[in-house]
Design a protein around this nucleic acid. Structure first.
Lengths: 221, 221
DNA sequence: TTATTTTGTTTGAGCGCTCATGCAAACTAC
DNA sequence: GTAGTTTGCATGAGCGCTCAAACAAAATAA
């Protein structure tokens, strides 16, 4: 099963490619686990390789540099986060208030709000200022999220017949609020439980949108 | 004029102590500058010594370990932050709403909200999970701040005849909001200017305390 | 005062170690 | 066989930290 007439059939080893994807995934997950256990500066190619049960050389083989591997890990972390809120948004229906509530609720879902996940976020953010590559990745994904928040806020304001020019500021504020509560959870100071943080956020949303108190009512989780 | 019979005249070298304090300060400032320039993992005893114009050995002489030096730098950063909001609070008078506004306004004062200052915050926070010493320092100072915020919120709620049991949640939320906006300024995503961030925060405060719109009005800076 | 000792400070070379990366060889699936 | 993997040791750079020695200031003695 190979000579298919003249053309150079570029069917390059399907299995090998799958293997590569699997290895890359294995290494990325190992990197995330190592960051959680050892912190980002404490994460070395050796700790990642050990965690993955592979040799150190294979990490270099698939990601040329350590920074490349870490960048891939950051992207994976953002992808999971984004997938989470996009699903919540899809499931939320058409009511703008429900969509806004869904976006906020998604931020405190255990899968993205666990202590482990927080460690990863702050580890990368802490180095973002001295690593342009990390900063660029963060910026790209953060834009997706704030666009979604702003759109939901704008739709809600329009529905209520209020000034939609406030949408950007409100979106940024809501985003800031959730991020800041994440920080409190991470540092274990003040608010420490996701459910509590969600309740606080909803309390703020009720104040901002007093026309729709029910939607931002007691957290139904 | 000297023989006081038995007693050992304890006149202990005043100049030397001053010298030590000056050196320590010099090294701490150098460490902060190095963190801003090179990031925390990129900060070594060598970069700090170079920045201070001193030898590497002298850094070890005054702080026994690198971690000790970095911890001192984090404390200095928090002290400056705390001094800033305490002064603002003292200057704010007795009106609870004014006191709350002062606390928030202080957070976006250039001296604590510059990009350089943000880099330092997030550098330390990023490593707090793997460095118990950093975490303890952060926790201690964060408690001071949230106590002050909670107290201001409680006083305002009492004045308005509202339920004061909400004070803790509101304080945590306000703190979260400012911290989250700091993150946006730091990552240069969304809100990027302190004045803008302050306006957003005040917009939220007006929603939370509609009885006192004027106090949380357009930022007067 | 001047000389000497004591005490505190500063230096920079260097030790032991870990790191990211390079690389030659071994292995494996076609 | 051959091309794609995988290994794990070699390499050289850089790390925190040690330390003997040099230096400076203060205390003491003359």
């Amino acid at each position: 099963m190979s000579q298919d007439s003249g053309g150079v059939q570029p069917r390059p080893r399907k299995e090998r490619t799958e293997n590569a994807a699997r290895r890359r995934g294995q290494l990325i997950e190992a990197a995330l686990r190592s960051i959680i256990e050892n912190g980002l500066p404490g994460t070395t190619l050796a700790t990642v390789a050990r965690e993955a049960g592979l040799s150190q050389g294979v990490a270099v083989f698939y990601f040329q540099t350590k920074e490349g591997l870490l960048a891939a890990a950051l992207e994976r972390h953002y992808e999971r986060y984004e997938e989470n809120w996009r699903q919540a948004l899809d499931a939320a229906g058409d009511d703008p208030a429900e969509r806004l509530a869904a976006l906020v609720r998604a931020d405190f879902h255990p899968s993205v709000c666990s202590r482990e996940a927080q460690i990863v976020w702050h580890a990368f953010w802490g180095e973002a200022s001295s690593r342009p590559l990390f900063n660029r990745i963060a910026d790209r994904f953060d834009t997706h999220r704030s666009d979604a928040l702003e759109a939901a806020a704008a739709a809600l304001l329009a529905e209520l017949g209020r000034d939609t020019s406030e949408a950007r500021a409100l979106g940024a504020g809501i985003e800031g609020l959730t991020d800041g509560l994440w920080l409190q959870i991470y540092l274990a100071s003040g608010i420490t439980r996701p459910a509590e943080a969600l309740a606080v956020t909803f309390r703020f949303l009720r104040a901002l949108f007093p026309e729709r108190p029910a939607v931002f009512g007691a957290p139904g989780d």
